[in-house]
Design a protein around this nucleic acid. Structure first.
Lengths: 147, 147
DNA sequence: TAATAAATGAGACTTATTCTCATTTATTGT
DNA sequence: ACAATAAATGAGAATAAGTCTCATTTATTA
Protein backbone atom coordinates (compact mmCIF):
# COMPACT_ATOMS: atom_id res chain seq x y z
CA UNK A 1 0.00 0.00 0.00
CA UNK A 2 2.75 2.41 0.96
CA UNK A 3 4.32 1.23 -2.24
CA UNK A 4 1.38 2.07 -4.46
CA UNK A 5 0.72 5.52 -3.03
CA UNK A 6 4.34 6.47 -3.72
CA UNK A 7 4.01 5.01 -7.19
CA UNK A 8 0.89 7.04 -7.88
CA UNK A 9 2.66 10.23 -6.87
CA UNK A 10 5.82 9.62 -8.87
CA UNK A 11 3.86 8.55 -11.93
CA UNK A 12 2.23 11.95 -11.86
CA UNK A 13 5.49 13.79 -11.19
CA UNK A 14 4.33 15.03 -7.87
CA UNK A 15 6.87 15.12 -5.08
CA UNK A 16 6.55 12.38 -2.51
CA UNK A 17 5.79 13.80 0.90
CA UNK A 18 4.42 12.35 4.07
CA UNK A 19 1.05 14.11 4.07
CA UNK A 20 0.44 13.08 0.47
CA UNK A 21 1.23 9.48 1.26
CA UNK A 22 -1.02 9.52 4.32
CA UNK A 23 -3.95 11.05 2.46
CA UNK A 24 -3.57 8.69 -0.49
CA UNK A 25 -3.38 5.68 1.78
CA UNK A 26 -6.46 6.73 3.68
CA UNK A 27 -8.34 7.08 0.40
CA UNK A 28 -7.02 3.79 -1.00
CA UNK A 29 -7.84 2.05 2.24
CA UNK A 30 -11.39 3.36 2.43
CA UNK A 31 -11.95 2.40 -1.17
CA UNK A 32 -15.24 4.25 -1.52
CA UNK A 33 -16.24 7.86 -1.86
CA UNK A 34 -15.62 9.49 1.52
CA UNK A 35 -16.65 12.78 3.09
CA UNK A 36 -13.92 15.18 4.13
CA UNK A 37 -15.11 14.85 7.71
CA UNK A 38 -14.64 11.10 7.67
CA UNK A 39 -11.31 11.50 5.96
CA UNK A 40 -10.13 13.87 8.69
CA UNK A 41 -11.26 11.35 11.28
CA UNK A 42 -9.39 8.58 9.54
CA UNK A 43 -6.26 10.71 9.45
CA UNK A 44 -6.66 11.47 13.15
CA UNK A 45 -4.75 14.72 13.11
CA UNK A 46 -1.71 13.30 11.35
CA UNK A 47 -2.10 15.92 8.63
CA UNK A 48 -2.83 19.59 9.26
CA UNK A 49 -6.18 20.81 8.05
CA UNK A 50 -4.65 23.31 5.65
CA UNK A 51 -2.35 20.63 4.28
CA UNK A 52 -5.21 18.20 3.82
CA UNK A 53 -7.06 20.67 1.64
CA UNK A 54 -3.88 21.44 -0.28
CA UNK A 55 -3.17 17.78 -0.88
CA UNK A 56 -6.71 17.21 -2.08
CA UNK A 57 -6.27 20.08 -4.52
CA UNK A 58 -3.00 18.59 -5.72
CA UNK A 59 -4.72 15.29 -6.39
CA UNK A 60 -7.50 17.07 -8.26
CA UNK A 61 -4.93 18.84 -10.40
CA UNK A 62 -3.35 15.58 -11.52
CA UNK A 63 -6.84 14.23 -12.21
CA UNK A 64 -6.90 11.35 -9.83
CA UNK A 65 -9.40 12.84 -7.43
CA UNK A 66 -13.04 13.57 -7.99
CA UNK A 67 -14.89 15.93 -5.66
CA UNK A 68 -18.61 16.46 -5.41
CA UNK A 69 -21.27 17.57 -2.97
CA UNK A 70 -23.69 15.08 -1.50
CA UNK A 71 -27.39 15.93 -1.17
CA UNK A 72 -26.86 16.69 2.52
CA UNK A 73 -24.24 19.25 1.50
CA UNK A 74 -21.12 17.48 2.64
CA UNK A 75 -18.12 17.45 0.38
CA UNK A 76 -17.28 13.98 -0.88
CA UNK A 77 -14.03 12.94 -2.43
CA UNK A 78 -12.97 9.81 -4.30
CA UNK A 79 -9.89 8.52 -6.05
CA UNK A 80 -10.20 7.78 -9.75
CA UNK A 81 -7.43 5.41 -10.68
CA UNK A 82 -6.90 3.68 -14.01
CA UNK A 83 -8.91 0.61 -13.07
CA UNK A 84 -11.75 2.78 -11.92
CA UNK A 85 -14.06 3.00 -14.88
CA UNK A 86 -16.88 5.40 -15.63
CA UNK A 87 -19.50 5.21 -12.92
CA UNK A 88 -22.27 7.02 -11.13
CA UNK A 89 -23.37 7.59 -7.52
CA UNK A 90 -26.02 6.33 -5.20
CA UNK A 91 -26.64 8.33 -2.02
CA UNK A 92 -28.42 7.25 1.13
CA UNK A 93 -30.49 10.19 2.34
CA UNK A 94 -30.43 8.86 5.88
CA UNK A 95 -26.87 7.81 6.75
CA UNK A 96 -25.12 9.72 3.97
CA UNK A 97 -23.35 6.71 2.50
CA UNK A 98 -22.19 7.09 -1.09
CA UNK A 99 -21.85 4.06 -3.35
CA UNK A 100 -20.24 3.79 -6.78
CA UNK A 101 -22.57 2.33 -9.36
CA UNK A 102 -21.87 1.17 -12.88
CA UNK A 103 -24.76 1.19 -15.29
CA UNK A 104 -25.14 -1.09 -18.29
CA UNK A 105 -23.30 -0.61 -21.54
CA UNK A 106 -26.57 -0.22 -23.47
CA UNK A 107 -27.65 2.48 -21.09
CA UNK A 108 -24.41 4.39 -21.49
CA UNK A 109 -24.72 4.17 -25.27
CA UNK A 110 -28.23 5.56 -25.13
CA UNK A 111 -27.14 8.31 -22.74
CA UNK A 112 -24.34 9.27 -25.14
CA UNK A 113 -26.92 9.66 -27.89
CA UNK A 114 -29.12 11.79 -25.68
CA UNK A 115 -26.13 13.94 -24.84
CA UNK A 116 -25.38 14.44 -28.51
CA UNK A 117 -28.91 15.73 -28.98
CA UNK A 118 -28.51 18.09 -26.05
CA UNK A 119 -25.21 19.38 -27.43
CA UNK A 120 -26.86 20.31 -30.71
CA UNK A 121 -29.95 21.78 -29.14
CA UNK A 122 -28.07 24.09 -26.76
CA UNK A 123 -24.92 24.52 -28.79
CA UNK A 124 -22.84 23.17 -25.93
CA UNK A 125 -19.72 21.12 -25.91
CA UNK A 126 -20.47 18.51 -23.26
CA UNK A 127 -17.37 17.02 -21.70
CA UNK A 128 -18.71 14.97 -18.86
CA UNK A 129 -21.85 13.71 -17.22
CA UNK A 130 -23.07 11.75 -14.23
CA UNK A 131 -26.19 10.12 -12.96
CA UNK A 132 -27.01 10.61 -9.31
CA UNK A 133 -29.51 8.43 -7.50
CA UNK A 134 -30.97 9.15 -4.08
CA UNK A 135 -32.76 6.89 -1.66
CA UNK A 136 -32.55 4.83 1.47
CA UNK A 137 -30.52 1.74 2.18
CA UNK A 138 -33.43 -0.33 3.43
CA UNK A 139 -31.18 -2.84 5.07
CA UNK A 140 -29.54 -3.37 8.43
CA UNK A 141 -27.37 -0.27 8.14
CA UNK A 142 -25.87 0.51 11.53
CA UNK A 143 -25.70 4.22 10.80
CA UNK A 144 -29.24 4.72 9.59
CA UNK A 145 -31.65 6.18 12.07
CA UNK A 146 -34.41 3.89 10.83
CA UNK A 147 -36.82 6.71 11.61
CA UNK B 1 -46.78 38.23 -11.60
CA UNK B 2 -47.51 39.68 -8.17
CA UNK B 3 -50.76 37.82 -8.53
CA UNK B 4 -49.20 34.45 -9.12
CA UNK B 5 -46.63 34.63 -6.36
CA UNK B 6 -49.41 35.36 -3.86
CA UNK B 7 -51.41 32.53 -5.33
CA UNK B 8 -48.52 30.11 -4.96
CA UNK B 9 -48.12 31.03 -1.31
CA UNK B 10 -51.80 30.79 -0.42
CA UNK B 11 -52.18 27.51 -2.29
CA UNK B 12 -49.55 26.10 -0.01
CA UNK B 13 -51.03 27.66 3.13
CA UNK B 14 -48.01 29.81 3.72
CA UNK B 15 -48.58 33.31 4.98
CA UNK B 16 -48.19 36.04 2.42
CA UNK B 17 -45.36 38.36 3.33
CA UNK B 18 -43.32 40.87 1.44
CA UNK B 19 -40.01 39.01 1.46
CA UNK B 20 -41.70 35.84 0.25
CA UNK B 21 -43.36 37.70 -2.60
CA UNK B 22 -40.11 39.41 -3.57
CA UNK B 23 -38.13 36.16 -3.58
CA UNK B 24 -40.79 34.27 -5.52
CA UNK B 25 -41.06 37.04 -8.09
CA UNK B 26 -37.31 37.13 -8.56
CA UNK B 27 -37.30 33.37 -9.14
CA UNK B 28 -40.31 33.47 -11.46
CA UNK B 29 -38.82 36.37 -13.36
CA UNK B 30 -35.45 34.72 -13.83
CA UNK B 31 -37.14 31.54 -14.96
CA UNK B 32 -34.01 29.40 -14.83
CA UNK B 33 -31.94 27.85 -12.09
CA UNK B 34 -30.14 30.71 -10.33
CA UNK B 35 -27.26 30.89 -7.88
CA UNK B 36 -27.90 32.40 -4.48
CA UNK B 37 -25.38 35.12 -5.31
CA UNK B 38 -27.26 36.13 -8.41
CA UNK B 39 -30.53 35.95 -6.53
CA UNK B 40 -29.17 38.31 -3.87
CA UNK B 41 -28.02 40.67 -6.60
CA UNK B 42 -31.44 40.59 -8.21
CA UNK B 43 -33.06 41.36 -4.87
CA UNK B 44 -30.66 44.25 -4.37
CA UNK B 45 -30.84 44.26 -0.60
CA UNK B 46 -34.63 44.38 -0.47
CA UNK B 47 -34.61 41.22 1.65
CA UNK B 48 -32.23 40.61 4.57
CA UNK B 49 -29.75 37.79 4.10
CA UNK B 50 -31.15 35.81 7.02
CA UNK B 51 -34.66 36.26 5.69
CA UNK B 52 -33.63 35.18 2.21
CA UNK B 53 -32.28 31.90 3.55
CA UNK B 54 -35.38 31.43 5.69
CA UNK B 55 -37.68 32.05 2.75
CA UNK B 56 -35.72 29.59 0.60
CA UNK B 57 -36.12 27.00 3.34
CA UNK B 58 -39.83 27.71 3.51
CA UNK B 59 -40.13 27.13 -0.22
CA UNK B 60 -38.19 23.90 0.08
CA UNK B 61 -40.52 22.73 2.82
CA UNK B 62 -43.58 23.16 0.62
CA UNK B 63 -41.74 21.36 -2.17
CA UNK B 64 -41.69 24.08 -4.75
CA UNK B 65 -37.98 24.76 -4.56
CA UNK B 66 -35.11 22.55 -5.58
CA UNK B 67 -31.60 23.26 -4.35
CA UNK B 68 -28.36 21.77 -5.58
CA UNK B 69 -24.67 22.52 -5.84
CA UNK B 70 -23.09 23.34 -9.17
CA UNK B 71 -19.71 21.90 -10.15
CA UNK B 72 -18.02 25.18 -9.19
CA UNK B 73 -19.53 24.80 -5.72
CA UNK B 74 -22.11 27.52 -5.81
CA UNK B 75 -25.56 26.81 -4.46
CA UNK B 76 -28.21 26.87 -7.14
CA UNK B 77 -31.91 27.13 -6.56
CA UNK B 78 -34.89 26.68 -8.86
CA UNK B 79 -38.66 26.75 -8.62
CA UNK B 80 -40.49 23.56 -9.43
CA UNK B 81 -44.05 24.47 -10.27
CA UNK B 82 -46.75 22.15 -11.57
CA UNK B 83 -45.94 22.76 -15.23
CA UNK B 84 -42.30 22.05 -14.57
CA UNK B 85 -41.81 18.42 -15.42
CA UNK B 86 -38.99 16.03 -14.62
CA UNK B 87 -35.75 17.35 -15.99
CA UNK B 88 -31.99 17.37 -15.68
CA UNK B 89 -29.21 19.97 -15.68
CA UNK B 90 -26.55 21.18 -18.01
CA UNK B 91 -23.74 23.27 -16.52
CA UNK B 92 -21.29 25.54 -18.28
CA UNK B 93 -17.91 25.08 -16.62
CA UNK B 94 -16.82 28.51 -17.73
CA UNK B 95 -19.59 31.00 -17.01
CA UNK B 96 -21.50 28.85 -14.52
CA UNK B 97 -24.81 28.98 -16.36
CA UNK B 98 -27.29 26.22 -15.53
CA UNK B 99 -29.86 25.07 -18.06
CA UNK B 100 -32.85 22.78 -17.58
CA UNK B 101 -32.83 19.86 -19.98
CA UNK B 102 -35.53 17.30 -20.68
CA UNK B 103 -34.40 13.97 -22.03
CA UNK B 104 -36.44 11.69 -24.24
CA UNK B 105 -39.21 9.47 -22.97
CA UNK B 106 -37.41 6.34 -24.16
CA UNK B 107 -34.33 7.38 -22.27
CA UNK B 108 -36.27 7.93 -19.07
CA UNK B 109 -37.88 4.51 -19.43
CA UNK B 110 -34.51 2.88 -19.84
CA UNK B 111 -33.11 4.81 -16.90
CA UNK B 112 -36.01 3.64 -14.75
CA UNK B 113 -35.13 0.06 -15.63
CA UNK B 114 -31.48 0.64 -14.76
CA UNK B 115 -32.55 2.11 -11.46
CA UNK B 116 -34.64 -0.94 -10.69
CA UNK B 117 -31.57 -3.09 -11.22
CA UNK B 118 -29.53 -0.87 -8.93
CA UNK B 119 -32.23 -1.03 -6.25
CA UNK B 120 -32.08 -4.82 -6.24
CA UNK B 121 -28.33 -5.03 -6.37
CA UNK B 122 -27.72 -2.68 -3.45
CA UNK B 123 -30.96 -3.30 -1.59
CA UNK B 124 -31.78 0.39 -1.76
CA UNK B 125 -35.06 2.16 -2.09
CA UNK B 126 -34.33 4.79 -4.73
CA UNK B 127 -36.63 7.77 -4.56
CA UNK B 128 -35.09 10.22 -6.97
CA UNK B 129 -32.40 10.64 -9.57
CA UNK B 130 -30.87 13.21 -11.86
CA UNK B 131 -28.54 13.41 -14.78
CA UNK B 132 -25.96 16.18 -14.72
CA UNK B 133 -24.05 17.23 -17.81
CA UNK B 134 -21.00 19.48 -17.84
CA UNK B 135 -19.38 21.38 -20.64
CA UNK B 136 -18.90 24.69 -22.34
CA UNK B 137 -21.39 26.86 -24.11
CA UNK B 138 -19.39 27.21 -27.30
CA UNK B 139 -21.37 30.18 -28.44
CA UNK B 140 -21.24 33.93 -28.11
CA UNK B 141 -21.81 33.89 -24.35
CA UNK B 142 -21.04 37.30 -22.94
CA UNK B 143 -20.02 35.88 -19.59
CA UNK B 144 -17.63 33.22 -20.81
CA UNK B 145 -13.96 34.04 -20.61
CA UNK B 146 -13.31 32.30 -23.94
CA UNK B 147 -9.92 31.39 -22.55
C1' DT C 1 -59.79 46.28 15.28
C1' DA C 2 -57.35 44.01 19.01
C1' DA C 3 -54.91 39.91 20.37
C1' DT C 4 -51.82 36.46 19.09
C1' DA C 5 -48.74 33.99 16.52
C1' DA C 6 -45.60 34.17 12.93
C1' DA C 7 -42.11 36.52 10.21
C1' DT C 8 -38.46 39.90 9.80
C1' DG C 9 -33.99 42.62 10.17
C1' DA C 10 -29.62 43.32 12.01
C1' DG C 11 -25.89 41.53 13.32
C1' DA C 12 -23.52 37.92 16.12
C1' DC C 13 -22.11 33.24 15.53
C1' DT C 14 -20.57 28.90 13.35
C1' DT C 15 -18.07 26.17 10.31
C1' DA C 16 -15.81 24.83 5.89
C1' DT C 17 -12.25 26.35 3.19
C1' DT C 18 -8.42 29.41 1.93
C1' DC C 19 -4.52 32.22 2.94
C1' DT C 20 -0.09 33.78 5.17
C1' DC C 21 4.32 33.18 6.64
C1' DA C 22 7.96 31.24 9.20
C1' DT C 23 9.93 26.59 9.30
C1' DT C 24 10.78 22.02 7.45
C1' DT C 25 11.40 18.73 3.82
C1' DA C 26 12.25 16.92 -0.88
C1' DT C 27 14.85 17.24 -5.07
C1' DT C 28 18.86 18.09 -7.90
C1' DG C 29 23.42 18.50 -9.44
C1' DT C 30 27.95 17.73 -7.95
C1' DA D 1 26.33 11.77 0.46
C1' DC D 2 25.70 16.92 0.58
C1' DA D 3 24.66 21.63 -0.07
C1' DA D 4 21.70 24.73 -2.42
C1' DT D 5 17.19 25.66 -3.91
C1' DA D 6 12.57 25.18 -4.54
C1' DA D 7 8.55 23.21 -2.87
C1' DA D 8 5.60 21.64 0.86
C1' DT D 9 4.06 21.97 5.59
C1' DG D 10 1.90 23.46 10.14
C1' DA D 11 -0.36 26.71 12.86
C1' DG D 12 -3.39 29.78 13.10
C1' DA D 13 -5.50 34.10 11.04
C1' DA D 14 -8.79 35.42 7.48
C1' DT D 15 -12.89 34.75 4.59
C1' DA D 16 -17.44 33.61 3.36
C1' DA D 17 -21.77 30.85 3.27
C1' DG D 18 -25.23 29.80 6.06
C1' DT D 19 -27.57 29.73 10.76
C1' DC D 20 -29.09 31.67 15.02
C1' DT D 21 -30.80 35.15 18.45
C1' DC D 22 -33.75 38.47 19.93
C1' DA D 23 -36.11 42.71 19.85
C1' DT D 24 -39.42 44.69 16.59
C1' DT D 25 -42.81 44.43 12.88
C1' DT D 26 -46.37 42.25 10.25
C1' DA D 27 -50.04 38.92 9.05
C1' DT D 28 -53.94 36.36 10.55
C1' DT D 29 -58.14 35.51 13.14
C1' DA D 30 -62.08 36.23 15.64
Amino acid sequence: MSQSSRKILSEHSVSITNPRILVLEALLDFGNPITIDELQLKLGGSVAKSTLYRVLNDLKKINILNEFTSPDNSTVVELILEDHSHHHHLFCSDCGEVIDVELSEEFEIMLTKEIQKVQKKFNFEITDHRVEMFGLCTDECANCKKS
